[in-house]
Amino acid sequence: MELVKDIILQITFVVLPIFVYHLLWLSRNNLSSLKPNKLLITCGSIFSSILCLIYPIELIDGAFFTLQPIPLFTSVVYGGSIPGLLTLLTTSIYFSQLYELGWVYFCGSVTVYFILSLSLRSNWYSYTFKKKLNYAAIYGISILIFSLCTIIIVSVLIPHYVDLTNYVIPGITIFTLTLILSLCIYLIEYMRANAVMRMELMKAEKLSIVSELAASVAHEVRNPLTVVRGFVQLIGNSTNSTLSTVYK
């Protein structure tokens, strides 16, 4: 039961900044473009990462797991290199104060995660939703490979230190991380699609108002012109009658 509570808490830490970003930025009434707010993305990613480190998930005695790679990934692909780098540095500094022994491994791992995320940044917005989910799976597999390589190196340097559970746990944790990352990408893309739809509706309403105003102006102008045209025709007919009388 404690494990379920910790997992739900970690998911909350990861998902909450997404909803806050939507509330403060994407749901604005005067939204004119989907240009990302890097300040909000940076603050939300740092907040999420630090909370994930403070309240990790303890799978078994001495084995901890966090969803910290998720806010790092989203900060890079949706915000850019600067929000991702600030998230990386902030969490690394905080981790050095929290867990001194594993600081080098943590910095190395999050640096690898940052580089993996940065490699997808350039064309991320042009990818389809399905392709983004595929890259999220590749990201999770890359983390798994990095974790397994680390375990193998430790097993070589320190014999009898690594047992079978050290190979099984990364597989389970990375599978969970990949699923939650896919959920976060789905939420972000869904909110962005809603924002685009709302922008299109606002543009359509503005065009409708302009067309109605143009029709009203045209109607108001057409009526006087019709009267003027009638008087011009009467004057023309009257002039023609006068001229014909004179010539007779």
Rank of each mutant, 00 (worst) to 15 (best):
F114Y: 04
L67W: 12
I57C: 10
L67Q: 09
Y161I: 11
I145L: 03
Y99N: 11
F65L: 05
L67R: 09
S155I: 04
K132D: 05
F95D: 00
T165Y: 10
P83T: 01
V110P: 02
V154L: 13
N134C: 13
T111M: 10
F65E: 08
A63D: 06
T165R: 11
V76Y: 04
F146C: 09
Q97C: 15
N134P: 08
S75H: 01
K131F: 15
I138Y: 07
L72R: 02
L179E: 04
V110W: 05
Y113R: 11
N134I: 14
Y78V: 01
N166S: 13
C107P: 03
P159F: 01
L144N: 00
Y105H: 14
L101T: 13
I82Q: 11
Y113G: 10
L98I: 02
S81K: 14
F65N: 06
G79T: 01
N166Q: 14
F73C: 11
G62V: 02
S155C: 02
F95C: 08
T66Q: 11
L59T: 06
V112G: 04
Y78D: 08
G62E: 03
L59D: 05
P159R: 01
R121Y: 15
F95A: 01
G62I: 01
I138W: 09
V112W: 04
G171N: 10
G102M: 07
L181A: 06
Y113L: 11
P69T: 09
Y167E: 01
Y113E: 14
P56H: 09
I172K: 03
Y167M: 07
L85W: 04
T178G: 06
S92R: 01
Y99P: 08
T91W: 02
L179D: 00
G102C: 14
G108K: 06
T66I: 04
K131R: 15
V77R: 03
L179H: 05
T74V: 15
F64C: 06
L59Q: 09
T111C: 14
E58H: 07
L86E: 03
I180E: 09
S96K: 11
I70M: 08
I145S: 00
L89D: 06
G108I: 05
V156S: 07
G62W: 04
S122L: 10
W103F: 11
L133N: 09
R121S: 10
R121M: 15
F114Q: 07
S126A: 06
H160Q: 14
S155E: 03
L133R: 08
F65Y: 11
T91H: 02
L72K: 02
L120F: 02
F129I: 12
I138R: 02
I151W: 01
Y167N: 00
N134Y: 11
N123V: 10
L85F: 10
L67A: 13
T111K: 00
F129T: 13
S119F: 13
Y135M: 01
S96A: 15
I158L: 08
F65G: 05
T74A: 11
P159I: 03
L89Y: 00
N166H: 11
L101G: 15
L148A: 07
Y55F: 12
V77I: 00
P69R: 04
